[in-house]
Write a protein that binds this DNA or RNA. Sequence first.
DNA 1: TATGATATCCTTTTT
DNA 2: GGATATCATA
Length: 841
Amino acid sequence: MQSEILKGLSEAQRAAVVNFEHPSLIIAGAGSGKTRVLTSRIAYMIEQGVKPWQILALTFTNKAAAEMRERIERMVGDGSRYIRMGTFHSVFSRILRENAERIGYPTSFTIYEPNDVKSLLKTIIKEMQLPDDKYKPNVIASRISMAKNALITPGAYLAKTIYATEDRQAQIPEFGHIYNEYCRRCKHNGAMDFDDLLLQTNILLKDCPDVLAKYQEQFQYILVDEYQDTNYAQYIIIRRLSQLHGRVCVVGDDAQSIYSFRGAKIENILSFRNDYPAAQVFKLEQNYRSTRTIVNAANSIIKKNARQLEKTCFSQGDEGEKIRILKAYTDREEAEMVVGDLRDKLRETGDRWSEAVILYRTNNQSAVLEDNLRRRGIPYRIYKGSSFYDHKEIRDLMGYIRLVINPRDDEAFKRIVNYPARGIGDTTVERIAQLAAARQTSMWEAVDQLIEEPAEDAVTRAIVRKVKEFVGLIRSLSLARTTMGLYDFGLEIANKSGILPLYRQDNSPENASALSNIEELLNSMQEFKERVDAEIRGGEREAEEEATIEEWLQGVMLMTDMDSDDPDDQNKVTLMTVHSAKGLEYKYVYIVGLEENLFPSMRAAESAEGIEEERRLFYVALTRAKCAATISYAEMRFKWGNMEFSRPSCFLREMDPAYIESEVDFRAERQRPAPSEEGVQAIDELRRRFDYRFQQKRQEGASAGSYGQRTGYGSTYPSRPSDGESGRVQRFTRQNDPYRKQGSTSYPNTRTQFDGQVKSAIDTLKGEPRRLVRTASAPTPSATPSSCAFHAGDRVEHPTFGRGEIMRIEQANGDWKLVVEFPNVGQQKTLLAKFAKLRKL
DNA sequence: TATGATATCCTTTTT
DNA sequence: GGATATCATA
């Protein structure tokens, strides 16, 4: 009799499900039913007699893990609970906790979130007296992360000269020592960062053969979802665990590998067959999601990539409509067009708002779209992968909990010792830190010693009293932990710490949201306790393994906002980055900002691999669409407060024209020269005039209530003309409007006029740029790009850096970059001619 | 020690 | 432009 599980599966899917005794590579094209195959495979294994606890299933998100568990439970029932299934980080943090002492960590180790990492790095950089303009915590943190993901320990790092060379070139020669000190401190504080959860797991499995053997024995079957996104550390963990039996099943799509910037190695999936020569390969090539047009168009793009696994994705669905390409003059107009089109589309089809998504490359593109949606009264939601601890109140509360669990957690200590304010100022904290450093102890222990010491003067006595109060507070919370239930304990902390009272003081909207976050945090404690109690009743847990705050904290640290689906978000248009869209599907997909230097991004354009990854990203975006995809680009857009020209993305040209319907010729524009200084200035000028005019109108119209609500453009166009004389940026006011003084009458005062001017400006630029410059050039004579007032070798004086010599001059972005050496400062500075107040000597 | 002014950063970000 | 961090100041 055939298993129920196999019913309704295609030939290819079924093969991938039933052959579970060998290493398997399941190449799952977009929309090919990947999750279904993976869950069916696990369910089938259980049905065939594999014990659930012998199965290890790893995912990248909690959400994916939860969804899989749910689906498996529907197929095989309760047994699914015993499957070890979760994210890499959560599964291995649990294993680490069970074995922490073997690698020199306390069982109660806490997890440093990115803020703690940054803060600790800042401290170290300061202590080592390194210049913080070169040693940026973010840069250092990401380099450390890369090293850990590549399993390069500080020792190994310092031993290799190649890294030292790299660091010298990057002007961070001390990086290796920072890395070393960082790791030492983390360990000393009994803390691991996210990357440690993988690195330390590797160390554990390498250094403790008995532990490795135990888990090798336990996990007879290992399944990995989204294998194309695994990094080296994850790859090695999988190799180690599967070394004996080799029963590894990886599922993924190399065409959707988009996380290399976080250390993911597409090579892992590309060379799986070399790593596991006995591997069977299953290809899921039929797309059940999208129209033929979408799938074929996506194929036509991805085939430009050199490195990929061979496969032919196809759809047997409708042909569907062609992909449309919209062109706008500005980012604002792009939003207008896209949202307008989206609204028309849904009106026409009668579909709900939630069937549509707008995808962009970078988060800051969402602002204009939001603006437009809001104005039209269209419900939308922005899907942003923020962490729980992105909320300050959560971070603070967690600080208390962390310190109680692990008093060595210095980052937690620093965060809460004076929050809410209790008169323990920076100098006191600094002193505690120094005491701790001198005695090689944690700050918590140092504080103990501080209050033992006799206080000489009144000021010290007052401080000691305050510190004593704090110590008493933490001690009493520590005691409460042993006597109270999980939820009560959480509430006790929220109250006694003063955080809850703080937010209860008044009911501003921000406070209300903070309170609801705190409430959510406390609720999650209760939920956790109930779940564990149920497990004890069900016999999955021993009675003495009650829910502990450690266990709860561990889970919550690895949680993101995205994991909880908000029911309020029904029937809304979704806005998100392409990255966040992976794995999701929508009937109507809008992809905006298909421009060079945006999508593909500027950084990516520097390397062939970079472009390939962007191409995969575009592939991901396109294949989210079930029915129709619309792509847009703008000729210019705001970037960092400046208007910048852009050219249509090369990806538009790469798409097979057979699947495109477009009224604009995005191909011909390849010929247009790169935006010139003149062009940028001219547009800036127009923009400014328009903006000024608009402000005036709004001021007048505010009382009359007659200001263009319907189109409502221009409210946030920047008005930031730079004054060539002083080099200072000034706010634009009636008084200093140069055009007012000149008696100019050509303010555009409607959107149409404005766009008309912009259009003619662009057309003029294409033909003869010079004329426009003369008519509309800004009054900044110093910014003439063809010549620079300074020359290499000139001696100059700077108001803060003193005297120096110009070493180099480079043309840059409408100005001149001067590399100047200042002997007084002892280093080179790169200055912009327009802004630096340099005086020729 | 709280607050307003100024410097600084700015792709993507599953944990 | 804009959010956030750091700084100066009373």
